[in-house]
Design a protein around this nucleic acid. Sequence first.
DNA 1: CTCGGTGCAAAGGGTTTGCATACAT
DNA 2: ATGTATGCAAACCCTTTGCACCGAG
Lengths: 136, 136
Amino acid sequence: MATEREPVRRTTQQRGLVLATVKASGVEHPSAEAVFARVRDMLPRISLGTVYRNLQCLAADGCISVVHLDGGAARYDPSAEPHDHFVCRTCGMIDDLPAAGSPAGRRAAELAGHEVTDHAVVLYGRCRRCRAPSEP
Amino acid sequence: MATEREPVRRTTQQRGLVLATVKASGVEHPSAEAVFARVRDMLPRISLGTVYRNLQCLAADGCISVVHLDGGAARYDPSAEPHDHFVCRTCGMIDDLPAAGSPAGRRAAELAGHEVTDHAVVLYGRCRRCRAPSEP
DNA sequence: CTCGGTGCAAAGGGTTTGCATACAT
DNA sequence: ATGTATGCAAACCCTTTGCACCGAG
C-alpha cells in the first residue's frame, strides 16, 4: 500500500501565536481557553476551534505537550520533554518535576510482557504555598 | 460552626448492583456506560444518571476507584487500593500494576516543599498481546 | 413521616467537526 | 492553482443537575 502522505504544515499567524503563547507560559500550564483568551488579544478574529486545532497539531509535531489531569480540561505545557507534574489539591497549581520516570512501575509492566513507550505521572497533594497558612 | 452532617447512605438495589458490577469486573476497568449496560440487564428501569451518582459516591466512600486516562471517559476499578496502571496504546487494554509508587518523583516533589498525599501513574505502550502479531 | 435515592430530561463543560472561505505555498 | 488553515456554528461525548416522585429508615 502507498504510504499515506500527511498534509504539509503551513506557517500561519494563528499557529505562530498559539505556539508563542504556550512557549511563554512558563509553569502556568494554560488550558485551551486560556491560550485562546491571550491569543485573541493580538488577533481578535481567531476562533476557539482554530486554537484547539493548532494545539493539537503542535503537540503531534512534538513542539509542546498536553497534560490531562483527572476529568478536567487539558492543560498545555511548553516543554515537549517527558517530565512529571505535581498538582496541588488546594490551589490547583501545576508544578513541573524533573522527569522522575517511575522506573519501578515501568519495570513491573515490562515483566508482564508489555512494551512501555511513555508514561504520565501525576502526584497530588498540597503545594508549599498552600501548606504555609495554617494546619500542622 | 456546626459540623456539617453528611447525608446517611441508604442501601438501594441500584447502588448494590452498581457496586457488584464493578467488583465483578476484574481487570476490565469498565466505563460508566459499560456499567450502565450491565446493570440495566437486571434492572431495566435504572437510569444513566443514577449509575453516575452511585459510581461517584462509591468512589467517595472508598469502595471503588476511578481511573482517568487522557481525555476519555473515566474508568472504574474494583480495587480501592492505590495502584498503578498500564494502558496499551494499541488495544486500550488497562492492566493493573502492583503499586509502584514512583518514589523518585515523590521525593522530588517533597524537596520542592510540597506535601504529596497521593498520585496517579499511567504507563503507555503496547501490551503483550498487541506486541505479538507483527513488527519487531 | 423523613429525607435520601430514583428516573427522566435538560443543561453543562470541553472538544471536535462540516462547511464555505481565505490565504500560504 | 493547489489544498491547508481559518471562522463560524453545530454537533459531539461525557458528566452533572433540577425536579417530582418513590421508597428505605
